[in-house]
Amino acid sequence: MESKYKYINLSYLELMSDGDAQMKNILLDMLLTEPVGEFEKMQSLSAQKNWEELKQVSHKMKSTLPYIGFEELTETNKRIDKTLWERENSELSEKQIGQTIPELVKTVYELYKKTVPELTHARDNLMNLA
């Protein structure tokens, strides 16, 4: 489905909420509030090189971000998740992980920030619809 927004694509959200406006509203509200804390937590864990906990948070976001419908965002998070889950068997050294992951975490948060005005608009628009 074509999206009228530059970054977000709410077709998955639409599908999951069965077109229920109230449900959409709740989900959009959650997308505007929940990820902020999680991304901040990811940044903090990344700075501490706490890969284990970062892996959990990123994985948790894996099933949340598809609702936003911003492929780059979803894929970046998936890269974090995949890298960390495969860390033990990965060809990447600990040093390389230490360089890659913080960059990806920073990117994922920046990408998310881009979606916030659009998500806000979508929610407000939903409320203003007659």
């Binding site: 999951m16 709740i26 989900l27 948790k60």
Partner: peptide
């Protein structure tokens, strides 16, 4: 399930 969005959507879809 610990993810709230997944809880909501799963509940919504399965109880529909």
């Amino acid at each position: 399930e610990d993810n709230l969005m997944n809880q909501l959507v799963t509940k919504k879809q399965l109880e529909r």
